[in-house]
Write a protein that binds this DNA or RNA. Structure first.
Lengths: 191, 191, 191, 191
DNA sequence: GATGAATGAGTATTCATTCAT
DNA sequence: GATGAATGAATACTCATTCAT
C-alpha cells in the first residue's frame, strides 16, 4: 500500500554530510540537497519539517555515532592510551567540527524546541570534552604526564586536530600515531 | 572642497573584523556593517564594488599586516626560536583563521575575479606556510628536532592553534610558551 | 539626496484596505499588494518588515482613526444620542469588522510581538465596546430604555451592523437613522 | 466484498464543521481534516475530488438541512411568528455565516464547475433571504409592522445576528426571544 | 561623495493534488 | 478502496546590488 519509498532519512543524512564537507554550512539548503538526491524540494519536508530540524537530526545522529564509539573505549586502559583512542574517534568524525558553528547558527522558527536541542547537543559535546579533560588529569596524577602544561590546551589541541587539512593525505591512523607521538614525547631529538 | 569624508576603508575593516569575531562569516553583510557604521548601505559601494571585494581587501590587509610581522623575524635565529616567534605572530592574528573558511566560501558572481584574488591570497598564505615548513625542515636537519614526524603535521598544529577557544583565557604569550614547550618536549613526565 | 519616493505607507494602507474589501484577508499578501501598487514585492519590506507588521499597522491606524472620532462624541448628550453617534462612527469605519477576524488569525513568527500588538489592539477595541455598554446601561438607568433586554445583545447588534451589505445602498446616514429608529421603537405599527 | 469502509462523507462533514467552528475557514485543509479523521490525506480524494468540492458539498448539505427546517415553518402563521421561527433556525445554523465568505473565496481549478456550484449555492441562500423579505413585506402589508423602515435592513439584522458572540452565552432560544422582542417593540421604556 | 529608495534573485515553507502499490 | 510518498505551484522573506537625486 502506498508508493515505494525512493528516499530514506539515511540518504538525506549522507548527502547532508557530503554537502557539509564540500561546500560548508553555507551549502546546506533544501534546494541543493534535493537536487543532489534528484527529488523535489518539497519532498524533503516529508522527512524533516524544516531546515533546522534536518540539521539537528543530522548532528544528533553524528553525535550519537561518535559517543557510542567513545563509550567503547575500555575504562581500565592507561589514560594516555584512552586519549589516543579518543583522538582516533575524533579524527574519524571530522564533520563534527562544524557542529559548533551550526549550534550557534540555529534559528528555528520554533525557538523553544531549537533551544532545547541546542542545549542537548551542547551537553553531548561537552560530555566528550569533559571526559577528555578527566583523562588528561588522570595522566597527570598518575605521573605519566607532566603538570606544567594547561590541560585545556592539550584538550583543544586534540579536539581541533580534526581540522587539519593533512588528515586526508596521511590517513587517520598514521596521523593519530604521529600526532600522539609528538604530544607525548615532543619534537626534540633525543637520539 | 566637496563633502566631508565620513568614512575610511580602515573604519570598514575595523567593523568587518568585529562582525567576523562576534557573529562569524554569516554576519558579514552590508546591511549589518552599514548599520554598525551608521552610514547608508549603498555608501559602502563607494568603497568596495561588492561584498567579495570587501572581504578580499580585508583579508589581504590582514595578511599583509601579519606578513610584515613575520618578515621581522630575524633569519639567523635557530629554527626552533624562529618557529616560536612565528607561533606568537599567528596567535596575535587570530582573525586569520577565518580566511581559510572564507576562501572556501568565496563564490563571487564574477568567478573570474574571485579566482584571481583567491589564488593571490592563497599565495600569500602559502608563503607563510612554506616558510614555516622550511624552518621545520631546518630544525630537523640541524639535529634539533627528530625526523620521524611529518613536517606538515607540525605545521598544521602550529597553524591551527589560532582556533583554540582558550586563547583568551591564557593570554597569547603564556599560550605560546606552553604550546611550544609541548611541541618540543612533549607531555611525558621526565622528572 | 536619495531617490524620490514612489511609495508611502499611506499608499500601502489604501491598497491593503482595497484588497481586504474586495478579496478578504485571504487576498492580503505582498505579491498581490505589490502588483496593485506596481512596485517590486521586496520594496514593501522596506516599509514593513513582514506581513503581520503590515496588518498590525493597518489595524492600528484604522482603530486610531475611529477612536478619535468616538472621543469627539460629547459626553453630556443623552445616552441614546451618544449611542446613535457611536453607530454612525462605526458605520463610517466598516473595514473595522475585519479586525476581529484578523486578530484571531494573527500568527506571527515573532509570537511575542504578535501577542503584544494583539493585546494592544484588543484593548483599543474593548474600550469602544465597553463605552457602548456603559451608555446602554446609562440609558436603562435613566428610564429611557427598558431593562428587560440584555445589554450586550444590543451592543452586538450595534457593533455588527457594520457588516450589513446594504450599507452602501442606503447610505450611512439613512441607515443609521432607520436602524436606530428600529432599536428604539421597534417594528410594531403603533399608528 | 472488498475492504471495509473506514469513512463516510458524513464523517468528513462532521469534522469539516468542527474545524470551521474551531479554527475558521483558514483551518480547513485536507491535512488538518485527514489528521482529525485519522486517515491518509489522499483517502479524502476518494470522496471529494478536490478541496472546493468538499466545501461545496458541505455547504450544500448545510443549506439543505437548514432549508428543510425552514420549509417546516407553517405557512399560515402570522408573518411575525414566521420570522421568529426563521430567526431560530438561523441561530441554530451558525456555521452558515461562513458560507458567504467561502462563496467569495471559491477558486476551483475547474472554474466552470465552481461557478456553477457557486451560483447554485447563492440561489439556495437567496431563496431563504427572499422568503424572509417576503414575510417582512407581509408583516408590513397586514399592518403588524410599520413601513418606514427598509425591509432589507431588518433582513440583514436578522441574518447577521448569527454572528453575535453572545449567542453562546445566552443560548439560542433566549437570544431569539430577546432579539425579537427588541425588533418588534424596541428599547423604549413604555411602562 | 553620500545616500534613500527600489529591486531581482535566491531560499524557506505550505498545501493541494497526483502517482503507484 | 485506501494510503504512503512525491511533487509543483504559490507565498514569505533576505540580501546584494543598482538607480536617481
Amino acid at each position: 500500500m502506498g508508493r515505494k519509498k525512493v528516499l530514506t532519512k539515511e540518504d538525506v543524512f549522507t548527502v547532508t554530510g557530503e554537502v557539509l564537507r564540500e561546500e560548508g554550512l553555507h551549502g546546506v539548503h533544501f534546494k541543493n540537497i534535493s537536487n543532489r538526491l534528484d527529488v523535489g524540494r518539497s519532498t524533503l519536508y516529508e522527512y524533516f519539517s524544516n531546515k533546522d530540524e534536518l540539521l539537528l537530526a543530522y548532528m544528533k545522529q553524528l553525535m550519537k555515532e561518535m559517543n557510542d564509539k567513545v563509550d567503547d573505549i575500555e575504562e581500565d586502559l592507561p589514560p594516555n592510551r584512552k586519549l589516543y583512542r579518543l583522538l582516533l574517534v575524533l579524527l574519524e568524525h571530522a564533520q563534527l567540527h562544524q557542529i559548533d558553528r551550526m549550534i550557534r547558527d540555529l534559528q528555528s522558527s520554533d525557538k523553544h524546541a531549537a533551544m532545547f536541542y541546542r542545549d542537548e547537543l551542547h551537553i553531548d559535546l561537552m560530555k566528550t570534552y569533559d571526559l577528555m579533560q578527566k583523562w588528561i588529569e588522570e595522566a597527570k596524577q598518575t605521573g605519566i604526564w607532566k603538570t606544567t602544561i594547561d590541560s585545556s590546551l592539550i584538550g583543544d589541541l586534540i579536539f581541533h586536530s580534526i581540522l587539519f587539512p593533512n588528515r586526508e593525505r596521511l590517513g587517520v591512523e598514521q596521523m593519530a600515531d604521529q600526532l600522539f607521538e609528538m604530544i607525548e614525547y615532543g619534537m626534540e631529538d633525543r637520539s
